[in-house]
């Protein structure tokens, strides 16, 4: 295991070392000590390695991740796993705003709560939040799946496109063009699969979820819908 202590090594040096990893590297397990909430930790990775961050991370941790597994053992700041392409990011604490923003792929798992705009403009990522999510989450969400075991705040899925939202708890309000939809067997199967990938096994009853998605009324602008904007 490679250990980088940010008390003595700079973030720049950490990211240089991680960017230098070849696809077939045998340095596949990294541990980052004393992160102390620094921003932009383990960003732009593109190798099948695991990076454990032993504490809290600041903004944009694991931003634009490809292939790598990044585990934050504390809380994560704004925009964790923003624009992720593939791989996995696991936050063991809570996440701040815009978790998984615009992410195209991969899996983001948040053990605690996520703040406002979780999954904003998501473009294919799968997100599992074991706690609750804040307001304006999945705003303009294009594709991918957001699963929330707790509650969702105001205006969930506002101006949503084709992303699929599953919430087990309450939803304070739905955003424009977001509606509840029937939870069919194929959706339950997807839920089981993603919950399993998030390490929850069969512990969760998928029948308890409600599904939300786009009513597709705003897909082409029409003047009669002007009040909805």
């Amino acid at each position: 295991m490679s250990v980088v202590d940010l008390a003595v090594t700079s973030r720049r040096e950490l990211n240089i070392q991680l960017h230098a990893l070849a696809p077939n590297t045998n340095q596949t397990h990294w541990r980052v000590e004393n992160p102390n909430g620094q921003h932009s930790l383990a960003v732009g990775l593109d190798a099948p390695v695991t990076v454990e961050i032993a504490g809290h991370a600041g903004y944009y941790c694991a931003g634009m991740n490809k292939q790598a597994t990044v585990v934050v053992e504390g809380n994560a700041g704004v925009g964790v796993a923003e624009n992720m392409i593939s791989g996995m990011v696991h936050v063991k604490g809570d996440a701040s705003q815009a978790a998984g923003a615009t992410a195209h792929g991969g899996l983001l798992v948040i053990d605690g709560d996520a703040s406002a705009r979780c999954g904003i403009s998501m473009k294919g990522v799968n997100i599992v939040v074991k706690g609750s999510i804040g307001p304006m989450s999945a705003f303009m969400a294009q594709s991918g799946t957001l699963i929330v075991l707790g509650d969702a705040g105001d205006a969930l899925g506002d101006s949503i496109y084709e992303a699929r939202l599953f919430v087990r708890g309450s939803v304070k309000s739905l955003g424009t063009d977001c509606v509840e939809k029937t939870l069919r067997e194929e959706h339950k199967e997807e839920l089981r699969e993603l919950l399993n990938a998030a390490g929850l096994g069969d512990a969760i009853n998928v029948d308890e979820f409600k599904r939300y998605g786009s009513s597709r009324k705003l897909y082409n602008f029409h003047v009669d819908n002007a009040a909805a904007y």
């Binding site: 932009s40 960003v43 600041g58 903004y59 944009y60 931003g63 704004v78 615009t102």
Partner: peptide, 20 residues
């Protein structure tokens, strides 16, 4: 979607620099 205001922009620019 993931930053608001000049203080956040500074951190965002730093992220883009780190990635590249």
């Amino acid at each position: 979607p993931d930053w608001t205001g000049p203080d956040d922009l500074e951190i965002k620019i730093e992220e883009l620099r780190e990635i590249t």
